[in-house]
């Protein structure tokens, strides 16, 4: 395992693979994660994409990828990965292509597909032991259509379809556990604002075989309503507050990066317009307490 390579920030790649000129929003946390991931995965990859913001990465005749890309549909990117992987294996077996021509097959979807419409196809691909990497950029809503709430939207967040005074009434689905319940080779959460942690995990995934699934929390300036310059700050706060636990599932166990000193959840919330109703015109103490309590309870359970 090459984990040793990624000990310090200075070990991270200094040249970047993902091409410039994409139509992603300025300050996109998802693109930040993707470009960091791509540097580690390398160009011998084929991305199999589902409907979402990143569908627009490749708009004819422009593509930022130095490797390959296939757009499928919102529900079935993992099935597309199945077709590509199986075909490459067949071609390798038949000696129609050489080993050097092989590609890592990478599914790339947003949370709308990963947490909802594409979950059945993902479940099927994991259950079949498909040798692939799944990257979900999770901006907690249907971002490409204007940030309506999705199954990944956190409690109380205002979205285009939860504009009421208390925001979104539901709770973020625990996709990590759903994926882990399938017992794949590897599941991890990452975030672009923690590039070293991200690079280590992608490097680790790259060395493995079988289903390897990554959820990257993707701070979204237009969707979460914050200034693009704050993407990394908000990302770091998501980790420091314990709202976004960095964790891995491997060999049947879940391992956490436990934050040394968790800061209050409201530090994370108040930087985002989608939670502004919790603070003005009046502080919603009850809801803030509830949200803090949920995060505390999560970490209490982890340390037990």
């Amino acid at each position: 395992m090459n984990e040793v390579v990624m000990q310090h920030m200075t070990d991270l790649p200094s040249t970047h693979l993902l091409g410039t000129g994409t139509p992603m929003c300025s300050g996109c946390g998802g693109l930040e994660a993707l470009h960091e991931i791509y540097d580690v995965l390398g160009k011998n990859t084929v991305f199999v994409n589902a409907a979402g913001c990143m569908t627009l990465l490749s708009v004819y005749p422009f593509t930022p990828f130095r490797g390959s890309w296939l757009y499928t549909a919102m529900a079935s990117a993992p099935a597309g990965a199945q077709g590509v992987r199986d075909a490459l294996d067949i071609l390798l077996e038949q000696k129609c292509i050489k080993k050097e021509e092989d590609l890592e097959v990478v599914v790339l979807t947003g949370d709308g597909s990963a947490y909802g419409m594409g979950l059945s196809a993902t479940s099927g691909a994991i259950e079949r032991g498909l040798d692939f990497i799944y990257i979900c950029y999770d901006n907690e809503g249907y971002g490409n259509t204007g940030q309506q709430f999705s199954a990944a939207t956190p409690h109380a967040a205002k979205t285009a379809t939860s504009r009421g005074s208390s925001g979104f009434a539901g709770y973020k689905k625990d996709l990590f556990s759903i994926w882990a319940a399938h017992k794949p080779s590897y599941v991890a959460t990452v975030i672009g604002s923690e590039p070293l942690d991200l690079a280590r995990k992608i490097e680790k995934a790259k060395q493995m075989k079988g289903p390897r699934l990554i959820i990257a929390l993707a701070p979204c300036p237009p969707g979460w309503d914050f200034n693009p310059r704050d993407t990394v700050d908000i990302g770091k706060l998501a980790v420091k507050t314990g709202v976004w636990p960095l964790k891995e599932y491997i060999d049947g166990k879940v391992i956490h990066n436990i934050p040394h000193h968790r800061v209050p959840v409201e530090d994370y919330l108040q930087k985002q317009g989608r939670f502004v109703h919790l603070f003005t015109p009046k502080r919603n103490e009850e809801m803030l307490n509830e949200m803090q309590a949920r995060v505390d309870a999560y970490w209490d359970a982890v340390s037990e």
């Binding site: 549909a73 077709g83 099927g124």
Partner: peptide
């Protein structure tokens, strides 16, 4: 796990 996935895989393999 579905025809939707089946046809996706079929197309993807043909594309490969």
């Amino acid at each position: 796990e579905s025809e939707h996935s089946m046809i996706t895989a079929a197309g993807a393999a043909a594309a490969t």
